[in-house]
Structures are given as structure tokens and as C-alpha cells.
Write a protein that binds this DNA or RNA. Structure first.
Lengths: 174, 174
DNA sequence: GCTAGCATGTAAACGGTTACATGATTAG
DNA sequence: CTAATCATGTAACCGTTTACATGCTAGC
């Protein structure tokens, strides 16, 4: 997921690691800090895989910057990951959001719509949260205040997301 | 997080691993499957730490069941984890939800409210998602359709959650 | 005879967190 | 002179995923 974010930001322009980190933070607010111990190894993996190239430039004071650029293989790889997300990237809201953040890089509107449709299909299966005897539980039937809250919040989120998905798919295909 | 779920379900009644798995699945719908490779090692850790006891019973056909029960230390530990969540459990919606699912086990309403207040405080800091020059971006200003969607959905979720938190805290304290 | 569900586990690999390590510049 | 920001990295640890491994019973 970190790798996708790095590829996504580098698709737009070349950046050094520290700046990539700042962009990722800006994207997720303060929800989840990006640690150096995750970022730099992730960059190294991408370099080793031939998806990213580095060259050094003097830093603005401080240590010299390693400017990162996507290789042609890197561009292809990003587009492939956006086009064919793994199941967990459709299913898990957190990961789907990361996907959404870079989906505008896909050149084909039909392909963008196809990804949104997968999420739409997924959201229409469940109702989500708490099944008793295989049946989803209504918020009023939840056993306590806190599970009632979980249901209310989950429903509200799902509703807004479905609304947006329908609109977005419409505008991409219409 | 898996450990918290296991402790949470065992607080109510003794269960075997397979049943714990089923309960966790029921809680999160099909969003995130629980793998055996995560579940059984997690149980082993809890047993080794003295939080969970096992005894064997014949299974319903199939392999014999290992019935798991919370020890006194296990009960204390669960309550402590609910009372004093780590920062990430307040910050990360996924983890906070796991917390919520078992918060009714805390015997003191004031302590329950205190946990909700921490989440409330966190949600009031940001507006969330996308900062440009340190300022949060409005949905209409988002650079593309997909980031507009992210903002819309994030706002809707946040709004409903804040509404519920205010109500719930009111009813716990009033 | 085969598949699905019940029931338990191990081992390798992977990705992320936390802590450690270094060092320069700029603003208070 | 001291803290914050810029800038990069490594190493130990931890929990999860994925794949492997076993075996019984019930229903088609």
C-alpha cells in the first residue's frame, strides 16, 4: 500500500524521499503517520525491482537529496496495479481509498469506471457489520449502545459512498 | 487487534478457536477474513501470557475442540486495554471500531464516555484528508473526481460519527 | 466418491512499527 | 544554545498473510 502511494506520487513528478513522505502524510491527514523505517525500505524495494531510479542532488541545507523518478517499468506497474486491484484493495476501505487517490492516472475512463463498479458490487452485498444466524442485524436490534453506534456509522458511510459511486460511474460512462 | 477481539469474545463466554473465528467474521462482515495462521498463534500467545486457559472437549464430529476461557488475569487485561487504548486505536477507524465492539464490557459509564471523548477530540482536530500548504482542501477544490469522492465520503463519515459520539456521551453522562 | 464444513495447527515471507544512528541548517 | 526542520538510513521485533499439512463427518 505504501508502495502504491510512492508510485502514485512519482507518476506525477520526480521527488525525493522526504517529500514523498510529506505528500503521503498530507493525503491521510494525521490518521496514520508514515515511519522512515517503512518508507526507505519500500523505496529500496522499488529501486531494486527496477521501477524507480535515483540520482543525488544537493539538499536545501541538510543531507543531499536522493531524487526518485519512475522508470518506464514503474509507470507500467502503477497502471497495472490501478487497473487490476487485489481483492483486499476493493474490500478494505483504507486500501480502496489509497487506490482512489491515484485512479485519475488511469488514462481510460472505462477502466476507471470498472474499478468503481467492483467497489459498488462489493458494497451491495452485505449491509455490513454483525450477522446473527447469517442475517444482518438492524441498528435498533444491536445489543448495546456501542454496537448501535458502529451500525449507524457504517450505514451512513456506506450510503454516502454508494451515492457517490453511482454519480461518478454515471459521469464517467455517460 | 486480533488479540483484543479474542479477549473480548471470551469475556462473555468460553469458546473454542473455530467459534472465535466465526464470531470475529460476523463482526467485520466479509471485509477482512481472519486467517488460521493469525488466529491460532494469537491464541497461543494469550495462553503463554496466562490470559487464557484451555481444556479439550470432543468436537461435533471432526477434531476435538480446545475450549478457551479467560483467566482472572485475562479479564483484568481486557478491561485495561479498553480503558487505556493506545493512540493508534483512537486514531485509526478500523481499530477504534474493534474497541467499540467490546466497550460495553467496561463496568463504569464514565470510563466508557472517556474513551468516546478521546475519539471525539481526535475527530475535531482535522477535517481530514488532503492538506495543501497546511490548510484542509474543500471538496469542490479537489483536483479530480476521485479525490472529490474521497473528501465527500470522509466528511459524511466524520459527520455521522461526531453526531453519534455527542449523543452517546450525553446519554452515558446525563 | 466427492465436496463442504468442522477443527487444528506450522513455517516462510512480507510489511510495518519502534528504536537507534547521524548530521547539517535555520529560527527563536 | 537549543529546538525544529530537513534528510537519510539500519536493525530488531511483531503481527499478518499465504501456503502447507492433517483428518473426521455429513450430505449430495
Amino acid at each position: 500500500m505504501l508502495e502504491l502511494s510512492i508510485l502514485g506520487f512519482l507518476f506525477e513528478e520526480s521527488l525525493h524521499g522526504y517529500e514523498v513522505k510529506a505528500r503521503i502524510q498530507g493525503l491521510s491527514g494525521h490518521i496514520r503517520p508514515v515511519s522512515d523505517g517503512a518508507l526507505y525500505p519500500a523505496i529500496s524495494r522499488l529501486v531494486k525491482a527496477g521501477l524507480v531510479e535515483q540520482h543525488t542532488e544537493p539538499g536545501s541545507g541538510a543531507a543531499p537529496r536522493r531524487i526518485l523518478s519512475l522508470t518506464e517499468a514503474g509507470r507500467t506497474e502503477l497502471l497495472a496495479r490501478l487497473r487490476h486491484p487485489k481483492e483486499a484493495e476493493i474490500t478494505d476501505g483504507q486500501r480502496f481509498f489509497t487506490l482512489l487517490a491515484f485512479l485519475h492516472h488511469l488514462p481510460d475512463r472505462a477502466e476507471q469506471a470498472a474499478v468503481l463498479r467492483r467497489r459498488q458490487t462489493f458494497l451491495n452485498i452485505p449491509a455490513s457489520f454483525f450477522y446473527r444466524d447469517g442475517e444482518p442485524i438492524r441498528a435498533e436490534d444491536a445489543p448495546d449502545l456501542f454496537r448501535q453506534g458502529m451500525l449507524r456509522i457504517a450505514r451512513a458511510t456506506g450510503a454516502e459512498e454508494k451515492k457517490w459511486l453511482a454519480e461518478a460511474i454515471g459521469s464517467l460512462e455517460g
